[in-house]
């Protein structure tokens, strides 16, 4: 019997969508799926996971304080105790931080940010982007434990009608780094890697003030995050957290709107897997139009406010 352990991130008793994606991906392999939850409210979250593909759930108790090295060691302990063949979690900032350490504890390599994860017989096969998506690699694991992080928005949560048996494991004591506090995210806005809609601006907006029209358009959607090209981040108009591209974030939202972005190869690599791409640019020859599904050639300051109005009306009508 093949067993896959999934770390399911939860917040105050509610599993995070990214956590359910990881659990869904583990369940979809057909293997027996064991979920791990930790932190405040873990027991409440554990009680629900039988409905999302978990056959069993392990609650790490005593994890009210957070230490990434301790969590990693404890997850590795559960993977060993379960004699699991694979470990998965979502490629969130926590997953990216913890999964490599879990892998090292298991003396296994890590397959990061995978867009596909499958099991055939006893072989796990992953697909993941290289060079921010300029290349797509299909890889087979020969590791003792196949350790994987999964790209957000690429895997579906599942609904099952089972009840998972819940057990508890006490967290270990050693902590090398300790989380002291979490401050508010910049602006408290949606993260560009998570949002279903991304409205991005580039140098065509002329200055930092020009981003007001980007903010208006994002606000009109209600569920949009703001993105930025490297040029405007380097110029200090926008924070790096919003940068899309090879030295920023790779995004694949349902809708990506690029405003005043010419479409350098490094930027295209970061957004080319978006479902629908819209480009608004006054230069009809801009490379961004080569990847866009729909384009408008025109002045952003004339087009975007009108588009924001139309979106607002459409959202209000729906």
């Amino acid at each position: 019997m093949t067993t896959v352990v999934a770390y399911v991130d939860q917040d105050g008793g509610t599993p995070r969508p990214a956590g359910l994606e990881a659990l869904g991906a583990a369940h979809a392999t057909g293997a027996e799926t064991v979920a791990i939850v930790a932190g405040l409210g873990a027991a409440d979250a554990a009680a629900t996971l039988g409905g999302n593909g978990a056959a069993r759930v392990v609650v790490l108790t005593g994890t009210e304080t957070y230490s990434p090295d301790r969590l990693s060691a404890d997850i590795a302990g559960v993977v060993r105790a379960e004699s699991a063949q694979a470990f998965v979690t979502s490629s969130t900032s926590l997953g990216r931080d913890v999964a490599p350490r879990v892998a090292a504890h298991l003396d296994s390599t890590l397959f990061s940010d995978c867009t596909s994860f499958s099991l055939d017989g006893e072989t796990f096969t992953m697909v993941r982007p290289w060079m921010a998506g300029k290349l797509i690699a299909t890889l087979k694991s020969t590791a003792p434990v196949c350790c994987v992080t999964l790209r957000r928005n690429n895997f579906q949560p599942v609904e099952t009608d089972g009840t998972a048996a819940v057990s508890e494991t006490a967290a270990s004591a050693d902590m090398l780094a300790l989380l002291k506090e979490i401050g508010a995210a910049a602006g408290g806005k949606l993260d560009v890697s998570d949002a279903p809609v991304v409205v991005s601006g580039g140098r065509g907006l002329k200055d930092a003030d020009g981003f007001k029209i980007i903010e208006q358009l994002a606000d009109a959607f209600g569920n949009a995050a703001i993105g930025a090209s490297r040029a405007v981040v380097d110029a200090g108009w926008r924070p790096h957290a919003e940068q899309v591209g090879q030295t920023g974030k790779t995004v694949s939202p349902q809708l990506y709107i690029a405003v005043g972005i010419s479409g350098a190869i490094q930027h295209l690599a970061g957004m080319k897997t978006s479902k629908v791409i819209v480009a608004i640019n006054k230069d009809a020859d801009a490379p961004i139009f080569k990847v866009a599904d729909y384009g408008i050639v025109g002045d952003a300051f004339e087009v975007v406010p009108k588009l924001a109005e139309a979106i607002k009306a459409a959202v209000a009508a729906s």
């Binding site: 290289w130 299909t138 087979k140 020969t142 590791a143 009809a284 990847v291 408008i296 050639v297 025109g298």
Partner: peptide
């Protein structure tokens, strides 16, 4: 421990279109 099965270019996006000019 990572065996390469294959490496390929991402699928090309289907050709889009410019829907018009200006507002």
């Amino acid at each position: 421990q990572a065996e390469v099965v294959r490496v390929e270019l991402p699928p090309a996006r289907k050709e889009g279109r410019v829907v018009g000019e200006g507002p």
